[in-house]
Design a binder for these strands. Structure first.
Lengths: 172, 172
DNA sequence: GTAGGATTTGAGCAATATGGTCAAATCTCT
DNA sequence: AGAGATTTGACCATATTGCTCAAATCCTAC
């Protein structure tokens, strides 16, 4: 049985479990996707050979979408994605943002126009965990109201290439 | 004067202009951030030496945030970010998504619960361009209503590292 | 059109990284 | 304790990197 990178059939799609070495490699790759394998080995505290085979496996498992920085959190069991709109007491906005940043399930924060003041991207393993995180957010001093929208299905994952191609054709 | 990677002081922050070689390099890096410099040179149709110096410059300009896949579109002059919620005739949802995908300014699409049916991340150089894109979207058959929210300021750009670190500490 | 400045190119070179193998050592779970 | 898998360290051939340099090319401004 493999300790790291085990596949489970529990979630909707295939799910993957990572051990500490995998995590360290992923974190290093997020920091710098062009890091070399030998440095990766140092960071993870394993032999270069091991780092190399781990990297290969991570790529094959498509946790790393095409060798790079993007990580498929769904494969790790984070299946629930939600967008939360927060109404915030303006005087305490900075403090609210600071608190939000400390929650690992908060992936993105934008200040917005319109009714709500903050837009937050939230991820969780299941609705129960999401509920816990939402409670945590509502307890933050300065947050007056929240509205949660579930992302049921991703029709287009973040992409910038078409915009760049368009830029190439038109700006020049 | 440099043709490529010229800096302008026009926008709120510094702005950068890219030529075709820069674009091709960026697109290749988005596809695979770990691509090697010699392949990069082939893709862009320049000498390896040139690719190497272009890459170095792109990294220094921080268009590539830390050498990797993420691209700072703000530096290219795309300063307006908006979240659009679309109400869609369910029967035509797939067709709407297909149309949306063809618009380069559409960076992300999710099907959501709640009132609106689609959540869309939109980017534009200015509010005028945004207006044009919105009009284009409203012309799509099947779209019945739209609501636009502006992202005035990003308090936290997309990040996954804290979640992964948390995963390391708790899941195991 | 030409001069001057910047960029690109091709070549060449040393240092390093990669990808692969292998046997021994280690780890994990039964 | 034993079987199976993984890791390690060593080794090797090959490929890649980072660098220099002079010549060629491109671009802009005059």
């Amino acid at each position: 049985m493999v300790k790291s990178l085990a596949f489970d059939g529990i979630g909707s799609a295939q799910m993957v479990r990572l051990d500490e070495v995998d995590l360290k490699i992923l974190l290093a790759l997020i920091r710098d996707p062009r890091i070399q394998v030998s440095e990766l080995a140092d960071e993870a505290g394993v032999a270069r050979n091991t780092a190399q085979s781990r990297l290969r496996r991570l790529q094959r498992a498509e946790i790393l979408r095409e060798g790079g920085r993007d990580i498929d959190l769904g494969l790790l069991g984070y299946d629930v994605l939600a967008f939360v709109t927060l109404e915030v007491n303006h005087r305490e906005l900075d403090a609210v943002v600071t608190s939000l940043r400390q929650i690992p399930n908060v992936l993105e924060i934008h200040e917005t126009s319109g009714r709500g003041d903050l837009w937050v991207r939230l991820i969780a393993t299941d609705t129960h965990q999401l509920q816990l995180v939402l409670r945590q957010i509502l307890r933050i001093k300065g947050v007056t109201r929240s509205e949660t929208t579930f992302a049921l299905h991703s029709h287009l994952a973040y992409r910038a290439s078409p915009l760049l191609e368009h830029y190439a054709e038109h700006d020049h």
